[in-house]
Design a protein around this nucleic acid. Structure first.
Length: 274
DNA sequence: CCCCTATCCTGAGGGC
DNA sequence: TGCCCTCAGGATAGGG
């Protein structure tokens, strides 16, 4: 499940691989992964354009094109973007193939099809509602301690729900929400307005700490995440709680507990997360 | 406002 | 061996 660190890893490599390249040929074999505009307009609008920049916003990848449109990619749960020689046979569930000038191909595959593709000017995509307004980027200068702790004081929601809310903070998903709570020593079910000042500060510091480390490890390949070159990230080895219910807490040795919060599997340490 | 649930979708894994 | 069931969850929509 690609979250901010995985999407950032892919976006950085895509920047190197695709910026300056012209898309000479477009094959869209699964029209329903395109959410805007229609499939024909999407393919026609992509063909012949040059990639000028690649940016990540939350879990979205935005490729600025010389046509003034942006190609927007959301990987959903199982979406996979990769660049390979155009002659390689496509893997199953490959929905989009973009031929690049250098003989390589940018491909989008997604078994569950929770991912989606958009094309258009960013403002239009926002207007139409296919590109949602996102909260603060947790690795940017806008993510300040005052802003974060003030937001937490204002809500009664469980801390994990806030971390997962893309309108509050962009890019955090189920894996890193649990990891951030564990790093901060705060139980994910804790209601924000009841957190102490020290806990709010620990959470604020845990957010970039956990995300930066995961980026340094090129992401977590817990299920089927692979980078642009089809390689695994190594951050799975660093996970303290996610997917480890019933196992020992790496910090204190207690048995990690699994529960469900907001419909999401949630793992925490009953002893060192209060 | 906030929470819960269903929806989309496929593959993996368990039980029998 | 194979079939059926459940579960995984990012985002969104709808009901309470």
């Amino acid at each position: 499940m690609p979250e901010l660190p995985e999407v950032e890893t892919v976006a950085r490599d895509l920047r190197t691989a695709a910026v300056g390249q012209r898309i000479t040929r477009v094959r869209l074999s699964r029209p329903d992964v395109v959410r805007h505009p229609g499939p024909e307009a999407f393919a026609a609008g992509l063909r012949g354009t040059r990639v000028e920049a690649v940016e990540r916003l939350g879990k979205f990848i935005l490729c600025a094109l010389d046509s003034a449109d942006e190609l927007v990619i959301h990987l959903g749960m199982t979406g996979h973007l990769w660049v390979c020689n155009a002659s390689l046979p496509p893997r199953p569930h490959t929905h989009l193939r973009c031929r690049l000038e250098d003989g390589r191909e940018l491909r989008f595959a997604d078994a569950r099809r929770f991912g989606r593709l958009l094309l258009g000017p960013r403002a239009l995509l926002r207007e139409v509602g296919v590109l949602p307004l996102l909260g603060v980027e947790p690795l940017s200068d806008e993510f300040t301690r005052d802003r974060f702790t003030a937001a937490l004081r204002r809500t009664t929601r469980p801390i994990k729900s806030v971390l997962l809310d893309q309108r509050s903070i962009a890019g955090i998903g189920n894996i890193y929400a649990d990891e951030i709570c564990h790093h901060a020593g705060v139980r994910p079910t804790r209601r924000c307005h009841r957190l102490t000042r020290a806990e709010r500060v620990r959470l604020f510091e845990a957010v970039p700490a956990v995300l930066h480390k995961a980026i340094a490890n090129r992401g977590t390949s817990f299920d089927d995440y692979r980078d642009l070159w089809d390689a695994r990230g190594s951050n799975e080895e660093e996970l303290q709680v996610y997917g480890r219910g019933g196992l020992a807490c790496p910090r204190c040795g207690s048995v990690l507990r699994r529960t469900v919060l907001g419909g999401r599997s949630t793992v925490y340490c009953p002893d060192c997360q209060r």
